[in-house]
């Protein structure tokens, strides 16, 4: 009986794993095949990778979009981690009535759908000359309630004795944060970094609104542009999708373990 139960589990998990991985595998295989071979159901790597690549860079400015995406995502992640971890730490370590109220108000911002702020933000940013700029991309999502909450949650497990000891040793509050909290919370930072980088890289609606110049577009925008012709070249399209996915997959594999640990700390 237990044997049957256990093999049933393995069957379910294998099937689900296969379904999860298959579309990505198909993407990689299709990127190396001609469009005709893709529609014929090619299931093995083909020889058209270089041909697809030449067609892709002939049609779109891939290197520009790649550079833009990296620039926007890295700067946003850095700014976001600094500002939100400071706030999360502050809300937990120095908490009093006033700050708890502020935290409650910030959490309300989580409920605000982006569609509701998008139009006024667009108006504000076009007046301020922030269209097609990195700052324009970053500003709306540097400070997010989710990250502040994640860091506040992890600061909860940070022992107060350490803070007291550091204060007696004469460290100021910022030094305590930077020298004590920051190094011990690596896994939370890794989780925050994974989430923020992926969200920044994958963001589509906001750049589509403010990046009106072709020179400023991101990788997801470029990939979406590829589908706009009348005839779809599947090989080229999948190569574009692959290039757009590689950076996030790398981040995922490098930070996967600490991501899970960071989330575990936060769900407690």
């Amino acid at each position: 009986m237990i044997k049957i139960k256990r093999s049933f589990q393995y069957v379910v998990l294998t099937v689900v794993s296969f379904v999860s991985v298959f579309p990505l595998l198909w993407m990689v295989i299709s990127a190396t095949n001609t469009s005709l071979d893709v529609t014929r159901g090619a299931m093995l790597p083909g020889k058209a990778l270089i041909e697809n690549f030449q067609k892709l860079i002939g049609a779109q400015n891939v290197s520009q979009a790649m550079m833009n995406s990296f620039k926007y995502a890295i700067l946003l992640t850095f700014a976001s981690l600094c500002i939100c971890s400071l706030a999360g730490y502050g809300f937990e370590i120095f908490h009093d009535k006033g700050k708890d109220v502020v935290m409650g108000v910030i959490l309300l911002a989580m409920m605000v759908p982006f569609a509701a702020t998008m139009i006024p933000l667009f108006q504000m940013f076009s007046k301020a000359g922030l269209l097609n700029t990195t700052a324009g991309f970053m500003l709306p999502t540097i400070s997010t309630p989710f990250l502040i909450m994640l860091f506040r949650q992890s600061a909860r497990s940070f022992p107060h004795d350490i803070i007291e000891a550091a204060r007696i040793d004469g460290l100021n509050e910022f030094q305590i944060f930077y020298k004590m909290f920051f190094p011990t919370m690596r896994s939370t930072y890794a989780a925050a970094m994974t989430i923020t980088f992926m969200n920044a890289w994958n963001n589509y609606l906001w750049p589509k609104v403010i990046m009106t110049d072709q020179k400023s577009i991101t990788m997801p925008m470029l990939v979406a542009n590829l589908t706009e012709g009348y005839v779809t070249d599947y090989g080229v399209l999948m190569l574009g999708v692959l290039l757009c996915t590689i950076p996030t997959i790398i981040i995922f594999f490098v930070l996967q373990k600490s991501f899970a640990e960071g989330i575990t700390g936060a769900v407690k």
Partner: peptide, 28 residues
């Protein structure tokens, strides 16, 4: 192995997976 495989779709961008599914379910 199972956990990584099942979590893997999260690493793809929303635009990317939308286009992958669109291609998988196209007429051809």
């Amino acid at each position: 192995l199972f956990r990584t495989a099942i979590f893997l779709p999260c690493a793809t961008s929303l635009v990317s997976y939308a286009i992958i599914f669109r291609s998988l379910f196209a007429v051809d």
